[in-house]
C-alpha cells in the first residue's frame, strides 16, 4: 500500500465535506453559464421549425432533461452498488443525494413533454413509449425515496435503497422494451419525440450545451445535498459540531 495515493481517503465524510463544498460552487457556476448559453442558443439563435413553429423550442429543455433523468438513475445505482460492495458510508449518501435531482429531471421531462404535446398532438398526454417509460422511471425514483424515508436507521436505509436501485437498474431496459413493444402493438406507427425532421446544427449544439448545464447542475445539487446529509448523520462527531459552531 505504501507509496500509493489513498483513494479511500476521500470516501470519509470528514475529508469529503470541504471538498464537496468547493466543487459544488464551481459546478454551480458552470451550470449557470451553460444553461444561459444553451437557452440563448435555443430561444434566439436556433431557427423556427417549419412544421411546429416556435412550440418546438421546448425540446431544448425536454430532451436534455429526459437524458439526465435516465443517466442519473444509472449514476445513483452505481453509487448504491459501490456502497454495497465496499461498505463506504459516502456512497450511500451520494445515492440518496442524487435521487431527488433525478426525480426532478424526470418530472421536468414529463411536464415539458406534456406542454409540447398540447400544441403538437392536440392533447396533454399520449401513451407514447418514451413518455410512459419516463412515468415509470418517476415511480421508481419515488419508490427509492419513499423507502429511504421510511427507514430510520441510515445504514439500513442506504443498503435497502441500494438493493432497490440495483433491482431497478436491471429492470429499466426490460421495462423500456416492453413499453415500446406495447406501444407499437396498440398504436401502430406512433409519433416519436425524437423523429424531428432533420435537425439544424444549432439545435443540436443548443441541446448539447443545455445537457452539460443540467449535468453540472446535477453535480452541484447532489454535492450540496450530500453535504447536508453528511452533517445530519455525523452530527455527533467533532468535525460536524465544529462546522456547525463555526457557521452559526
Amino acid at each position: 500500500m505504501s507509496g500509493n495515493i489513498n483513494w479511500f481517503k476521500y470516501s470519509s465524510p470528514q475529508t469529503f465535506f470541504p471538498l464537496a463544498g468547493r466543487l459544488a460552487s464551481w459546478f454551480g457556476t458552470l451550470a449557470a453559464i451553460a444553461c444561459a448559453a444553451g437557452l440563448y442558443l435555443g430561444f434566439f439563435v436556433a431557427p423556427t421549425d417549419a412544421q411546429q413553429g416556435e412550440a418546438y423550442r421546448i425540446i431544448f429543455i425536454h430532451v436534455p432533461a429526459a437524458w439526465m433523468s435516465m443517466f442519473l438513475y444509472l449514476v445513483m445505482a452505481f453509487w448504491a452498488g459501490l456502497g454495497l460492495a465496499f461498505n463506504t458510508r459516502l456512497s450511500g449518501m451520494m445515492a440518496s443525494a442524487i435521487a431527488p435531482t433525478g426525480a426532478l429531471f424526470t418530472f421536468l421531462a414529463l411536464w415539458t413533454g406534456s406542454l409540447w404535446g398540447k400544441p403538437t398532438w392536440g392533447t396533454w398526454w399520449v401513451w407514447d413509449a418514451r413518455l410512459t417509460s419516463e412515468l415509470i422511471l418517476l415511480f421508481l425514483y419515488f419508490g427509492f425515496m419513499a423507502l429511504q424515508a421510511a427507514i430510520d436507521d441510515p445504514r439500513r436505509a442506504d443498503k435497502a435503497g441500494a438493493v432497490l436501485a440495483l433491482v431497478g437498474v436491471v429492470n429499466i431496459p426490460i421495462i423500456y422494451f416492453s413499453v415500446k413493444w406495447w406501444n407499437t402493438l396498440h398504436q401502430g406507427a406512433s409519433v416519436s419525440l425524437t423523429k424531428a425532421p432533420t435537425m439544424a446544427a444549432t439545435m443540436l449544439t443548443g441541446m448539447a450545451v443545455m445537457a452539460f448545464g443540467f449535468w453540472f447542475y446535477s453535480i452541484a445539487a447532489a454535492l450540496m445535498r450530500a453535504r447536508c446529509i453528511m452533517l445530519e448523520r455525523e452530527r455527533a462527531s467533532d468535525w460536524a459540531a465544529d462546522y456547525a459552531r463555526g457557521s452559526a
Binding site: 415511480f139 419513499a146 433491482v167 416492453s178
Partner: peptide, 19 residues
C-alpha cells in the same frame, strides 16, 4: 410502501401477460 416499490417493477409482466 410495498405497492410503490413493486408495482412499477410489475409493468413488463403486465404488458406481456395481458398482451
Amino acid at each position: 410502501l410495498l405497492s410503490l416499490l413493486v408495482l412499477p417493477l410489475y409493468v413488463p409482466v403486465l404488458i406481456i401477460g395481458a398482451g
